[in-house]
Nucleic acid binder design. Structure first.
Lengths: 331, 331
DNA sequence: CTGAAAGCGCTTACAG
DNA sequence: CTGAAAGCGCTTACAG
């Protein structure tokens, strides 16, 4: 059973010291070209790769980023992770993905593991239960930068990269206004979430600028509930020119079920518009028009912020990514 | 900046040797109860946790499993990972998730990283490009068990945990027969994939047992293509009693779009049935009837196989998880 | 230009 | 029951 090659083995075979091999492999200027050449050749031949545990033990640094998300079955996080991986590859980092299952206790365990592993940095969308952000700040102090994305804490002084909730809600509302629709049924998520508040406020304010507009606002905390409330509200609109706005994919899935159940078809019988990461709107015909919240963009932004932190930038910053309208056939 | 506590620090504070601390913390019988007690108390107080790099360097073993999947935006893999994490937590292992992006080169890099990290075991769904399985076998030889799941290689002598393709196709076909439907439009995926062959063969054979049954088989390698081929085929069926069978979620998404586009509604105008992991069928009203392929079950099966390998079982085994019918309202 | 040595934090065979 | 010592594989200040 051939073991992984080590510096020692290479050194013995070449009759040089371990130090020399180590230096040659990292192209240290002290080592002669000739020595470097023969060492590199043998290392290539043996497919030498440094033992990451030994390196870490010595240097206290891993070239690893951690990404922590509440859930993986989510197009938005998926594209976020894609963006991080793309960038990380370029800079020679690898990416470890953790899933908190939206459980604050698991999140704490993951954090601890990240600390012990001395990851180079953490990208995290916190759970909805997370209240204590002291552990995160502590990591930052210990030299492990933390970039919060999407689900971020209220606390001001940390690095936050967010979806432009107001902006997305605004362009959805404008699209409704542009179509001259005067009756609007808007379904929002959990009243207590800051994301709901931000989207609701902007949406209402834009819609409120129209004349004679009739806006009904409902809330749902799950896909099932969204189906129920939409189902109950729809009869009041049938026959009139109206639009349904869904503030998220979770809501959209439920509302679309209610709409199908009532036998209504967009854009003939009603308009449908959502804020979405872009997966679910494509499953229907016609495709649903939506204000896109792009995980991919957020990933790119987060990564460049991370690299700045690693380079030593210490001030915290909140970055907001703007949304764009993706036109389907549902309005 | 307070560093992480180490054995040395605890030893110094308590005026004992590092060896004693190490032993006390792992409840070694040699150490007196009294000593153990005071050491454990201090360790708790300091929130001591062994440095995983040092432990690994010494013992050549990490308590980590790697899960490698082609894609994360997939309900099936998501529930597979859930199952693995649940079990791993119980046994004190942590789980690292890698994504190969269905790229054989990235897969190789991940494998290399797993080897260097000396993970305790690997669960992998291989890419569709993967042809050389020698690297996997090599890991097995080096004492890192590899459990293939879902997307598995042809090679016989390895541990494979698969979805029951034949079984799922069989129960979907039976459901169609039971409903007395004589016209069947079946859409399958990439002709070259073994999964397609297995499902097709069983499906055809069960349908073939019916009398006067008219079966049309089409292929599509993407959601868009599924939409196109379904769209082209539908007009031939309108007005007759017929069913559409979709062999996967990818196909289902496309076919449903075509069905919606033609203004057809299940179960009034046609029957719809699929093989699915259970996410997409729930987005429609009525919900689509499907033969379930459960990632969760597969995860549980894979994990118990893994633990057996770690315990020393050396013979390879192929396990097939059977499917069950989830009745929606589409038939 | 090259090497010997110390040390990262742990485990464990050996000695007492 | 406890400790000194070696060593896992690496890096780097120090010496020559």
């Amino acid at each position: 059973m051939n073991q992984n090659p080590t510096l020692k083995k290479i050194a013995e075979r070449l009759n040089v010291s371990i130090s020399t091999v180590s230096r040659a492999l990292k192209d240290h200027p002290d080592i002669s070209l000739e020595t470097k050449k023969k060492i590199n050749e043998l290392a290539d031949l043996l497919e030498y790769d440094p033992n990451p545990y030994a390196v870490n033990l010595r240097t206290h640094s891993s070239k690893e980023f951690a990404v922590v998300v509440p859930s993986l079955s989510n197009f938005f996080y998926h594209s976020f992770i894609s963006a991080i991986e793309e960038e990380a590859r370029i800079f020679g980092y690898s990416v470890i993905i953790y899933r908190s299952s939206n459980d604050a206790k698991i999140e704490q365990e993951i954090l601890k593991s990240c600390r012990h592993k001395r990851v180079s940095g953490i990208f995290i969308a916190i759970t909805s239960e997370t209240t204590d952000i002291a552990p995160f700040l502590k990591l930052d102090v210990h030299g492990i930068p933390v970039i919060f994305f999407d689900k971020v804490p209220q606390y001001e002084s940390c690095n936050k990269i967010c979806v432009g909730d107001e902006h997305a809600a605004g362009i959805a509302a404008e699209e409704i206004m542009n179509k001259g629709i005067k009756n609007v049924l808007a379904i929002f998520g959990d009243k207590n979430m800051s994301i709901t508040k931000a989207r609701l406020e902007k949406f209402s304010s834009v819609i409120g600028q129209g004349e004679d507009v009739n806006l009904q606002i409902l809330y749902a905390t799950s896909t099932d509930e969204a189906e129920q409330v939409t189902l109950a509200a729809l009869p009041g609109y049938v026959g009139r020119k109206f639009a349904v706005f869904c503030m998220s994919d979770e809501i959209l899935a439920g509302s679309m079920k209610a709409i199908q159940r009532k036998g209504l078809q967009a854009p003939k019988d009603l308009g449908v518009i959502a804020i979405s990461d872009g997966m679910i709107p494509l499953l229907f015909y016609p495709e649903i028009t939506f204000a896109e919240t792009s995980g991919y963009n957020l990933g790119k932004l987060s990564f460049s912020r991370m690299m700045r932190c690693i380079a030593g930038s210490s001030f915290a910053q909140t970055i907001v990514d703007e949304s764009r309208l993706v036109v389907g056939g549902s309005m």
